[in-house]
Design a binder for these strands. Structure first.
Lengths: 225, 225
DNA sequence: TAAGAAGTTAAGAAAGAATTAAGAACCTTA
DNA sequence: TAAGGTTCTTAATTCTTTCTTAACTTCTTA
């Protein structure tokens, strides 16, 4: 899962980033609205965490812009606890959420999980694709109700593939999504072959059809037929 | 797709070139404005990536020149993050874009894709020609909704032909576009016959009309009748 | 209409990409 | 800090695509 944090306080930003990294999210950071919106324009994030009290503009405008342009991206608003509350309640929060400072990181985490769940899979607890189903809360996957033990990377890869079913994903875009900024430092993405192979094997061993197709010279595609 | 990168930093240029090569673009490189403009005068690029801070002249002048002489070529401006911003916003960016250093390669990629899409196919996701439709996201082509499995070169060739429908393209210009600088090293372009033949066969096998015409002594044309 | 130029086709060699297994490096966590 | 698992690297192998060659056909023009 990939998050964007828009927050000017360096120290807070870093600790949030570290926290989510430990929780195996990719968490990128923008220090102002301009940079933040620019990043959202380019990448797809599962959820944007946005402090609405930054010096460079009105955070609520930024939220409105994001919601309008990227209705499918989850937004969690972070604000100092004060009279802003009614302005926020004026927003149509829809599937999103907000949080007042100070907060516990685990609380933020819980809300991120909730937003992503609501957003990505229309409130379903389970992600289902053919014989495969995934329980994001338990971080577990099954094929025809038999549990498949996946490592973190394998799990992330599977979720990303299913979230982009029927589309060809290049090794590069997979790396981009699963490794975030680190991907830029890599000189080749061959190790993805290993993850693909292992994921395939585990799924097929439990009797799943050959969902994970290779498109020679291009990438991989997860599809029924 | 064919790009030209105008950038003096050798290391950056190389890493950009490598990246786009992996993404199956042709990416050529010029270290200064003079060489760059010369190349654009000679070849046709889908998009030019231009650093506007090179030592040999005013980059914005170069941009204006390119836009004036080659309005159909996309331009992405690369600049260091500083006070130039307002000068750039003074340009009529139109369908183009700009980017401040440092940036992620995938960010640059996303923008290139966006510029090319806007330019070539008026923002449509799907490229449609008669019975054929192409989905760049899926990297797939169909004839009358039946999937046609194309190799990379076949796919690139088809996209290029459709992007230039009703125009006669010489073997040379096709090679130029699909192989970039490598084309200069080739002593003949006869192997294109093979690609044409294979593409034709795959399209006709799925029932497409004979869109791909040979113009004896000149080249090929993709047209309805 | 004959001769040369250009295009088509098939078959196979060379280059490139994907698969796989084995193991080294690296985390965790007890 | 040692055990156990995960992730990444390397290298051999297999498979696909791409390019080359060569025989053959079609077209153009003198």
């Amino acid at each position: 899962m990939k998050l964007l944090l828009i927050e000017d306080e360096k120290a807070l930003a870093t600790s949030i980033q570290n926290y989510f990294q430990r929780e195996n999210f990719i968490c990128e950071w923008a220090a102002d609205y301009e940079t933040g919106i620019e990043k959202v324009n380019i990448y797809r994030y599962d959820c944007v965490l946005i402090d609405i009290m930054l010096p460079d503009g009105d955070g609520l405008d930024a939220v409105r812009e994001l919601k309008k342009k990227f209705p499918e991206t989850g937004i969690i608003i972070i604000s100092a606890k004060n009279s802003l509350d009614d302005r926020i309640s004026g927003l149509n929060l829809g599937s999103d959420d907000y949080l007042t400072k100070p907060f516990h990181l685990s609380e933020l985490n819980a809300r991120v999980q909730a937003v992503i769940r609501r957003r990505n899979f229309q409130g379903n607890q389970q992600i289902v694709f053919g014989k495969i189903s995934i329980d994001p809360q338990e971080h577990s996957a099954t094929v025809a109700r038999q549990e498949v033990i996946l490592t973190r990377k394998e799990y992330d890869l599977l979720v990303y593939l299913i979230a982009n079913k029927n589309r060809v994903l290049t090794k590069e875009s997979i790396a981009e999504h699963l490794w975030g900024d680190d991907a830029d430092l890599m000189d080749n993405f061959d190790f993805i072959y290993t993850h693909i192979k292992n994921l395939r094997k585990k799924l097929m061993d439990k009797g799943a059809p050959d969902y994970l197709k290779s498109i020679y010279g291009v990438g991989y595609k997860f599809s029924e037929s």
